[in-house]
Nucleic acid binder design. Structure first.
Lengths: 196, 196
DNA sequence: AGCATAACTTTCCATTGACAAGATGGGGGC
DNA sequence: GCCCCCATCTTGTCAATGGAAAGTTATGCT
């Protein structure tokens, strides 16, 4: 009776990979409209399932955003580790951080809004710690003397600088800025003094 | 018939200063639960008015958040100008920025989320520019040679550093940090090199 | 083959933002 | 001193949303 309505749409009752599809749809929706406008029902529509389907995989909205944030921390940690291995440059670690923010905007925006997700989720906390570790490891790599007195303090300053630039760029507070501000980020990051 | 229910609650049909009351209630609610959980109807309840009263003053939710953000930029600009006048210290300007973020958390969080408000509002844009100007003026105050090559670039780096630290602190990403991180902010901000 | 259960749907409810239309009363114009 | 205008606030309504409950389908394990 559903003769011609299902060219290929009806991939059977089961979606196949709904969890992944919903996360992708969420990232897309957030990139378009911001996290505030996110609607579970809209995600369900985009994925072609009923409005209650997401609940099965994520429990509730917070659950979905928790998964999205965890995915973000995971990918960030991976990107940082790769940069560290490839260049070993402290500066480029910061550039990678900023580039991640601009190319994974939706993930990045959610990651730093713990009021949107379940901040005590174990998987998320683990991924977050992996990101921090990758970031601070860059400071530890610095030759003695350049690392300054306190590695933690220098790392925090570097993190703050990269994070602040990324955040301001995302918020649109910086006018006349190129679309992919790699070079601008590099210029700003050079203002960091390890020694303090 | 409303015998004992109105000790002093029923200040007549007209509230008197509903606009201000709603903004204050919004700041309180956001401080408690974050901007995502904000509900106009809850604000109306807190102020003791009907659920449609806010619309008269702000149009819609975006309008209210626009006003809140504008108020934030105004207060930030004032705080920065005062610090500049009192100390003339570049470093302390950053400390003031961070302190503003922690003591006016609700305002600060909304200010950098343009998806929550009307980013083209003239009053808001003006207030935002006043904040920027106050911030960059601190760089201009630096004695020649310390200001480095590019005042705008140094200003952006300083802004990024202060903003990043404030944002990370607010997001709870920095464990074991004192309640009012003035000293930690000062330590981090000292890692800025004007010359680059 | 058959059953336990994961994956999804349908139905329902409370809350919310927004709009429309009406009630109230303060204050300016005369 | 009076009246009317209109800013201010209320009541009523609607569509959309998040979430819960209960039912349906199909998958994989034995």
């Amino acid at each position: 009776m559903e003769s011609y309505a299902d060219d290929m749409a009806k991939e059977s009752y089961h979606h196949g990979d709904l969890r992944r599809a919903l996360l992708a749809a969420a990232a897309e929706a957030i990139t378009e409209e911001g996290p505030a406008a996110l609607s579970l029902r809209d995600l369900a529509r985009r994925a072609g399932v009923s409005h209650a389907a997401p609940a099965h995989h994520f429990g509730d909205k917070r659950g979905l955003l928790t998964a999205l944030a965890a995915e973000g921390f995971d990918r960030l940690a991976a990107a940082l580790r790769e940069t560290r291995g490839a260049t070993g440059s402290f500066l480029e670690l910061g550039v990678t951080y900023v580039r991640f923010a601009t190319t994974h905007r939706a993930h990045f925006e959610v990651m730093w809004r713990p009021d949107l997700y379940r901040a005590d989720d174990p998987a998320l906390l683990a991924a977050r710690d992996r990101s921090s570790a990758a970031l601070y490891s860059g400071v530890a790599d610095l030759p003695d003397g350049q690392a300054g007195g306190d590695v933690r303090e220098t790392g925090l300053a570097a993190w703050s600088l990269a994070h602040g630039f990324a955040t301001l760029w995302l918020s649109g507070a910086l006018p006349d800025m190129p679309e992919l501000p790699d070079e601008a980020a590099r210029a700003v990051l050079r203002h960091l003094t390890p020694a303090g």
